[in-house]
Design a protein around this nucleic acid. Structure first.
Length: 268
DNA sequence: AAGCAGTACAACCGCGCACTG
DNA sequence: ACAGTGCGCGGTTGTACTGCT
């Protein structure tokens, strides 16, 4: 049972976008807004896949994009968030206005990874490189008992990356999720200290993932912790129900006060 | 100047989830 | 409950650019 292709590949352009194509896309979105990506190319007179249009707009043409080099501060935020979230680029991008997930992902792979390695830090575990092997062995020892205190970083395989990470987050308490940053602070001489506290973003997609089967109160509390701005205290919502911040009318990715739990939440 | 290797980043691809009928 | 569709995400690839020999 195959998936229907997102577009007629035989009649679509591929590769670099021309200025004319960019202009058509910009004009169309200005007039009609974002969305309906599948039908957009035809309506806009573009011989492109809808997905390609969406990507071009989000990663390159959007007017609110901040082009140019990443600042030192942005570097630190990315490193910090990656240590907490792993390869959740879209979530990391949500904390960096004007930056896209693709941009951050590329920047990570080409700059930060190398920077961390050269300073003796494993970019996946955010631990000192020479102790990474020991950490792996330690994790193996946990396999027969409780879930290992794995670093909050997605493993390379996509199939189990999100599930492993989600499982970790779901049962993760604040102190657990801060273990890696704490380690990093010690390892990097304490130059990165954004005081970020974090838990699992309460996205329905994560709640519904195959790995999410938690029902304990502690875990259901932890899944209500959201990405927190620096220096904000993590406060779990008072009830185990879904936080209502999805209904408060925030723009996607924005932060705001949740009237239900009186906390600062990010609308996802 | 030419060739090569390394780097940067735009774009593509496949998959999973949400939504809808 | 189920299948089809659209969208978003993360991983990967392709290619232009840059620096070195």
């Amino acid at each position: 049972m195959g998936r229907s292709p997102c577009c007629e590949k035989a009649h679509t352009n591929k590769g670099a976008w021309t200025k004319d194509e960019d202009q058509r896309l910009i004009n169309y979105i200005r007039a009609h807004g974002e969305g309906n990506w599948r039908s957009l190319p035809k309506s806009a007179g573009l011989l492109r896949c809808g997905k390609s249009c969406r990507l071009r707009w989000i990663n390159y043409l959007r007017p609110d994009l901040k082009r140019g080099n990443f600042s030192e501060e942005e570097d630190e935020i990315i490193i910090k968030l990656h240590s907490l979230l792993g390869n959740r680029w879209s979530l990391i991008a949500g904390r960096l206005p004007g930056r896209t997930d693709n941009e951050i992902k590329n920047y990570w792979n080409t700059h930060i990874k190398r920077k961390l390695i050269s300073s003796g830090v494993d970019p996946q575990t955010h631990r000192p490189l020479n102790s990474a092997a020991a950490a792996a062995i330690t994790q193996l020892d946990f396999r027969n008992s409780a879930p290992p205190p794995a670093p909050p970083v997605a493993p390379p395989s996509k199939d189990n990356s999100s599930s492993a990470h989600d499982t970790n987050c779901n049962s993760t308490t604040t102190e657990e999720s801060q273990a890696a940053p704490q380690q990093q602070r010690e390892d990097s001489g304490g130059d990165v200290d954004l005081e970020l506290s974090i838990g699992l973003p309460s996205q329905a997609k994560y709640m519904k993932s195959a790995s999410f089967n938690s029902s304990s109160s502690a875990e259901s509390k932890s899944i209500h912790k959201f990405l927190w701005p620096a220096s904000e205290e993590v406060v779990a919502p008072p009830s185990s129900s879904m936080c209502v911040c999805r209904t408060l009318g925030f723009q996607k990715g924005q932060f705001g006060n949740c009237q239900s739990c009186n906390g600062l939440y990010r609308y996802l």
